[in-house]
Design a protein around this nucleic acid. Sequence first.
DNA 1: CTTGAACCTGACGTAACGGGAGGTCGTAGC
DNA 2: GCTACGACCTCCCGTTACGTCAGGTTCAAG
Lengths: 259, 259
Amino acid sequence: MTGRDDTGRRWSIGELARATGTTVRALHHYDGIGLLRAGERTSSGHRRYTEGDLRRLYRIRALRGLGLSLEEIAGVLAGSADDLAAMRDLLTAQLRGLAAQAVRLDQLIERLHGLLDQIDGASMPGPDQFLTTLEMISVFETSFSGEEREQLAQRRAALGPAGVEAARAEWAELVVELLRHVQHGTPTDDPAVRALAGRWDALADRFHPAGADGERTRTAARRMWDENSGELGRSLPWPADQMRALVDYLDRVRAGLDA
Amino acid sequence: MTGRDDTGRRWSIGELARATGTTVRALHHYDGIGLLRAGERTSSGHRRYTEGDLRRLYRIRALRGLGLSLEEIAGVLAGSADDLAAMRDLLTAQLRGLAAQAVRLDQLIERLHGLLDQIDGASMPGPDQFLTTLEMISVFETSFSGEEREQLAQRRAALGPAGVEAARAEWAELVVELLRHVQHGTPTDDPAVRALAGRWDALADRFHPAGADGERTRTAARRMWDENSGELGRSLPWPADQMRALVDYLDRVRAGLDA
DNA sequence: CTTGAACCTGACGTAACGGGAGGTCGTAGC
DNA sequence: GCTACGACCTCCCGTTACGTCAGGTTCAAG
């Protein structure tokens, strides 16, 4: 189509940088990695860019603006010029990647909003309380996989804020009553205790989906408690060792029910 | 509150990594930069982490999960524990930064969608056509500031797709008629030519906001043409040199009007 | 011929680790 | 008591896309 650039304008590296809004250093870098080398050099070694170089640089800049890496750009610009399919594949993949990033970003923003609400809200936690919240976030995230967390979030959303609050209130009541039984040494086959244990498990069921998925989140929750009961207990309004005793007690009650 | 960690469990670096879902290498890194150093060492130099170290690591991981840098985390964890205000400021700033990122991401995704539509759409451009589109994106972006691009986008949106298409059709008609006049050498003070120039400028006005903002985008558009007429001309269905001649001709017509 | 701007080639720094080399420590089994 | 093997130690290089000197050469104007 055009000749082989043996005619037409030439640009020095500084001119090219100004013309395209890049920097001289970036052009040096592109040269170094072989992405865009000047078509010519003067006898003293200064780079002379041709019109073809300019057009290639425009393409590079446009693709970089779409978030592609220099390596990806080099790959797609290396293919023959009519390789529109490769270009489409690359852009499609990029779109998918960016969409995934956008989802994660939105989740992050949502979580930050939640934490800031907790700080600024009426509850106004003390610093210790907030730091404990941070620790629990870690514990939660290392104990549950992303999938499991999502399922729990869905269940919470399905219950609604009011439902979650009601569950929390009922759970607090159960803890108080069960702690009394633990301290009184009520036998684990006592009908009243068995009823309380049943309500406890029914309460937990509200947060776990039915079927195998629920089994997984339930197992993960149990593992979280086993490995971090000290940590988790500290954040509760009852002493950690009493909570551990309570969970052990509940296990014995359930063992009696199974037998 | 608790003693100074002189009692309680100890963790080796591997145990701590497994317990918190990090890697030994990351813990080495945290140690190296002073973010989290083991409370103790064995006589042979092995790190022994205390319960306090564990809790600090939990906080670090939670804050990293919110997208904060290790430097920011170190800063906020260095302050006295009751410095909830600093924490809130940091999280607020982080929220703002992430929100800005989300906006940019959405713009990128939108542009990728547009480009993919252009590839897959009925127009099905040839590879050259698409590469030219890429080059024009660069030209467009280096010529207009972000603000100016936004204003042009708003005007386009206000005109709607049909309005833009109508403008394009009218502009094509004007180009054809003016090119005839250029080739015929019609004098620049000819009333018919002056009428065409008036329609040309009125057409351009549709894309530039009124007032100083419009003046800026108009100036930027002119600069874009001056610096990249070769590039821009290539993407048009008329020869580049004829387009340049046309624009010069228009300038002379306007000069005659002003005088 | 001078001088200041533009250009050249290295080389180091960035963030948050990953991965490997080469050596030491600890303990379980023989 | 010896050996093996896993866990641990301390460097050190590599990653992305350049920014930022440093020290030396070339260009263009006066």
